[in-house]
Design a protein around this nucleic acid. Structure first.
Length: 190
DNA sequence: GGCCAGGACACCA
DNA sequence: TGGTGTCATGGC
């Protein structure tokens, strides 16, 4: 889950799955094995997920931190109090708010709502928040109005992604699509 | 061949 | 503080 959270940065999950399959075949999904992998070899394994040199560096930064600070014990690391774990994750190069929260929710099972480009896009298009709302404020909208249930946050986020993807998939040539604008926050094309 | 995709970060004004 | 470029592959 941690590796997937890093590899999925600005990348469709189907390509992340390819990289994960290669890592699994190489026996490189355990912290010790990942830490022992030469940078060039790791980069080749994660190549299908794009930005492979950057992501290989980020994976290495994470496992280096895990080994140095927690003896490579991922379970112990993930059992840290959520606020402390989040702060620690944000201190690792290449892990920002969304990646940290993905690890908290999906790997550590903590009730943290993950805000991604789809979440921002849907809420801003419904005028629930402004286009330039910062990550923390958008996250607070969900955290303040939903029960703090990891399973609920997990499914809620998954449904937002599904709705957005399905809407666009069924209307590939719809230039007036209300959801279709640049995920990086630039102006809509419509 | 162009466009775009479930971020993070450095750099600049 | 906000805007922009960079990282890079793969599907359409």
């Amino acid at each position: 889950m941690v590796v997937g959270a890093i590899l999925t940065q600005s990348t469709a999950w189907v390509n992340v799955a390819r990289a994960l399959a290669q890592l699994r075949r190489a026996g490189a999904l355990r912290p010790a094995a990942l830490a022992a992998l030469p940078a060039a070899r790791l980069a080749r394994l994660v190549q299908p997920s794009g930005f492979f040199r950057v992501k290989a560096g980020r994976l290495r930064a994470f496992v280096r931190h895990l080994v140095r600070r927690h003896g490579g014990d991922l379970t112990r690391f993930l059992r840290r109090p959520p606020a402390a774990l989040r702060a620690e994750l944000l201190g690792i190069p290449g892990i920002g708010p969304e990646t940290a929260d993905s690890i908290l929710l999906y790997a550590a099972g903590r009730p943290v709502f993950v805000v991604d480009a789809y979440t921002r896009r849907i809420l801003s298009r419904h005028r629930i928040v402004g286009r330039r709302v910062d990550y923390g404020r958008l996250q607070a909208v969900f955290m303040a109005h939903l029960p703090r249930d990891p399973g609920l946050f997990n499914e809620y986020h998954a449904l937002l992604v599904r709705v957005a993807k399905e809407y666009c998939r069924t209307r590939p040539r719809c230039t007036r699509c209300p959801l279709r604008f640049d995920l990086r926050g630039r102006r809509p094309r419509v």
